[in-house]
Design a protein around this nucleic acid. Structure first.
Length: 708
RNA sequence: AGCGGGAUGGGAUAGCCAGGAGAUUCCGGCGGGCUCAUAACCCGCAGAUCGGUAGUUCAAAUCUACCUCCCGCUACCA
């Protein structure tokens, strides 16, 4: 690790969080893989020796559980996803120098070697812990095989983390009221011997490590709090058989494997090693990077900061490997302002994007330059269109095309004169901005450096009006166009990390040989070829009706997923494949009407008898008071003629409780009693919508009168 | 309520971490220009208490405290 600016003379390795071999890739995943890819390419453009590696994460209970449900071997299950990922990445120009997986031989061996080192160095101890066990099925239940209640916040939680509540990582045995995910049986705890890593000993080291860590601020700040709260030792093993065996025979028993988060990050090293094995240590030396000096940059999602800033650096330090230089944690992606949800099919799937026929560079540009790296970024087809049409088509593409076309028509290529000082200086500024962006881990800055340069190009050509000069002042015209060709070349070089395909196309248009991916920033200033062929337009506008169509497809799909959810009892599986778009498109499809926000009307009709089962009465609120600790809930006493009922209602925020007593209300009287926040509720007050607009009577209905 | 992220001209965003002239860029609006270019591009304008309050400071969008509101996930949707 060093703090010297990029490029340094040490090799760098860029990684992205390992895709978990358990489902389809969507735009949220892509943000990380594309971001890391663009960052790695940008480093190379700066002249930094760089490897970009990753691999599929094959182990862990979700893979085992899902494989079991499909009745196939976990390895087969995970490999299937692994292969699909490998096919998908190139389609987005995500170009790994090596892409392995955690179950391969390299990773298995290296993981065992590293764990053995931890053990030998005295960082591992054994302890007896309680493990959930399903007595009926004679089955131990690690991690997500068990679910129950979070001991910290009381939310429903999975065995290894409180995914729906406080997001805490849970150690085995912590979860309360455990039940088996497989059988639903209540689980009991049994004593088992497991291996623990003394993470707690690394508090000081980690504090210092974080002080020097580059990347995004969230990756530095969050772990500091965890350290202050006190680090717990980390359980390295699990009672299951899908995973990597704990090294050695003495072993902590049969049926124990390493926790998936032990071998997963080690894949970063393994994958680098495989790269060296393929190209030779002369070309790229994994040992130098990982055991001597190298610039290690981890690009991850912000949900796995803990693993990369606590467990992982502690392991590296304990096993005497190089510490990461940077951890850059991306924010999440939202779709049309709402959270991406795979179970509700509110997502843009990788395959879907490709099926729509869009060039990968458009998405690459959007994802890397919209919002900061650690910011959550919203995706909408409208914003996508705006970004593409405005910046890629209008600014960059237009500048490229008008410059080159003019040059081709009048000079058969580049005019024979030197670049002007002004333009040269402007390109140098852009290179500085590009370099600064890389060093700040800001791809947006990197992208903007290019767009602004193209913007300058448009302004420059406009200001100098070469079309007026060709006859009267041929020398000046030649100068201007010479400058523009240089600017086109420079923008292509600087844009190549983000839009490698389009940059390559421009590279070819101006007659350059080889790959623009091999170009360095200095090539932005190198003289262009004397002649080139007639250029073409590299970016096409996205038309409005196309966007309308895409919006509609998305909406339709989300609705279908929602109704599937209701009718099928909510298995939550995303509808796969393409959804037929409805031809009854109306102009309203792009504008959300008010009813779009409402719950759809129920399809199923009920009989009068069903309605008879519902006993709704007129009541009057006698008293109303807030419930301690609850935000919206109020405890009400409601007089319904026959008796006064205690009811809990979520209306506190919307109503002044002092004004409620005396108000008539409508009460569903034969609701099953329920307990909320320790308060029994004996009925349900009717109210409309999110605002909890209270229903009442407007005539002289008596208390206890039935609603019919 | 918990965790996380926000609150900047009509909309979307930058700047804040390393405080210093009332503030970026994009879209939209208005006016103008140009015609090489994909109705593209260029120029000008439109006037916003940088969420609120109180501090620190010679100086705060930028630091501190408190508050309000918004978004995501989750929750208490009876």
């Amino acid at each position: 690790m060093s703090t010297e600016d990029f490029p340094t003379d040490r090799p760098a390795v860029v990684t992205c969080g390992l895709p978990y071999a358990n489902g389809d890739l969507h735009i949220g995943h892509l943000r990380g893989y594309i971001g890391a890819d663009a960052f790695a390419r940008a480093l190379e453009t700066l002249g930094q020796e760089t490897a970009y590696v990753s691999g599929s994460d094959m182990h862990g209970t979700p893979v085992a559980v899902n494989a079991e449900q499909e009745g196939i071997d976990p390895e087969e299950f995970a490999l299937r996803w692994h292969e699909q990922y490998q096919e998908t990445f190139p389609k987005f120009d995500v170009d790994f120098d090596n892409y392995g997986h955690t179950h391969d031989e390299t990773n298995t061996e290296l993981t065992q070697e590293i764990v053995r080192t931890l053990d030998e160095e005295g960082y591992v101890y054994e302890d007896e812990i309680l493990v959930a066990y399903d007595p009926k099925a004679d089955d131990y239940l690690p991690d997500r095989y068990v679910e129950g209640t979070c001991p910290y916040c009381g939310a429903k939680a999975r065995g290894d983390e409180c995914d729906e509540g406080c997001q805490r990582h849970l150690e085995p045995g912590e979860i309360e009221d455990p039940r088996s995910v497989r059988t639903g049986n209540p689980a009991e705890y049994r004593e088992r011997t497991h291996k623990f890593f003394r993470v707690s000993e690394f508090a000081d080291y980690l504090t210092e490590f974080l002080d020097g860590l580059e990347g995004t601020s969230n990756a530095r700040n969050q772990p500091r709090q965890w350290i202050e709260e006190g680090l717990q030792d980390w359980c390295l093993t699990r009672d299951m058989d899908w995973g990597i065996d704990y090294p050695g025979d003495d072993g902590a028993a049969e049926d124990v494997v390493l926790y998936v988060w032990v071998d997963a990050p080690i894949e970063y090293i393994s994958s680098t090693k495989q790269y060296t094995e393929r190209v030779g240590a002369d070309e790229y030396d994994w040992e130098q990077v990982w055991t001597e000096e190298g610039e290690i940059v981890h690009v991850i999602g912000r949900d796995i900061i803990q693993h990369h800033t606590i467990f992982w650096p502690a392991m590296l330090e304990a096993a005497d490997y190089t510490a990461p230089r940077a951890v850059a944690a991306t924010g999440f992606i939202t779709i049309n302002g709402k959270g991406l949800s795979t179970s509700r099919n509110r997502a843009i799937w990788a395959r879907e994007y490709l099926d729509e026929g869009f060039h990968p560079d458009l998405l690459r540009y959007y994802l890397t330059t919209t919002g900061g790296f650690q910011q959550d970024v919203d995706f909408s087809w409208d914003a996508f269109q705006e970004k593409v049409n405005g910046e890629l088509v209008g600014t960059v593409g237009n500048f490229w095309y008008r410059s080159l076309l003019f040059a081709y028509r009048n000079y058969d290529g580049t005019p024979d004169t030197a670049v002007s000082d002004e333009v040269e200086a402007r390109i140098e500024d852009a290179i500085d901005a590009f370099t600064g962006g890389v060093n700040d881990y800001s791809l947006r800055d990197v992208g903007n450096a290019t767009t602004r340069l193209a913007q300058f190009g448009n302004e420059y050509i406009q200001r100098n009006e070469p079309w007026k000069l060709t006859d009267e002042e041929p020398d000046r015209a030649a100068q201007v166009i010479r400058d523009c060709v240089q600017l086109a070349k420079a923008t292509a070089v600087l844009l190549s990390p983000i839009a490698p395909g389009k940059a390559q196309a421009l590279w070819e248009q101006i007659g350059e040989d080889g790959e623009i991916a091999d170009a360095h920033v200095e090539d932005a200033l190198a003289a262009p070829r004397d002649s080139f062929d007639k250029p073409g337009e590299l970016f096409a506008k996205i038309e409005d009706d196309r966007v309308a169509e895409l919006n509609e497809k998305l909406e339709t799909r989300i609705e279908e997923a929602a109704s599937d959810d209701e009718t099928e009892g909510g298995d939550g599986a995303p509808a796969d494949g393409e959804i037929e778009s409805d031809d009854t498109a109306s102009e309203q499809s792009t504008n959300m009407t008010d009813t779009d926000d409402l719950e759809p009307l129920a399809e199923d009709r009920i009989g009068f008898e069903d309605f008879q089962d519902v006993d709704i009465r007129v009541g009057q609120i006698e008293t109303a008071e807030g419930i301690d600790g609850a935000d919206d809930l109020a405890r009400l006493e409601v007089d319904i003629g026959f008796e006064t009922r205690q009811v809990v209602a979520g209306i506190k925020q919307l109503h002044d409780l002092d004004e409620l007593p005396g108000t008539q209300c409508i009460l569903l009287a034969n609701m099953e009693p329920a307990e909320l926040f320790g308060v029994e509720s004996n009925g349900m007050i009717l109210a409309a919508g999110e605002e909890a607009d209270l229903l009442t009577t407007h005539g002289d209905a008596a208390l206890g009168e039935k609603i019919k």
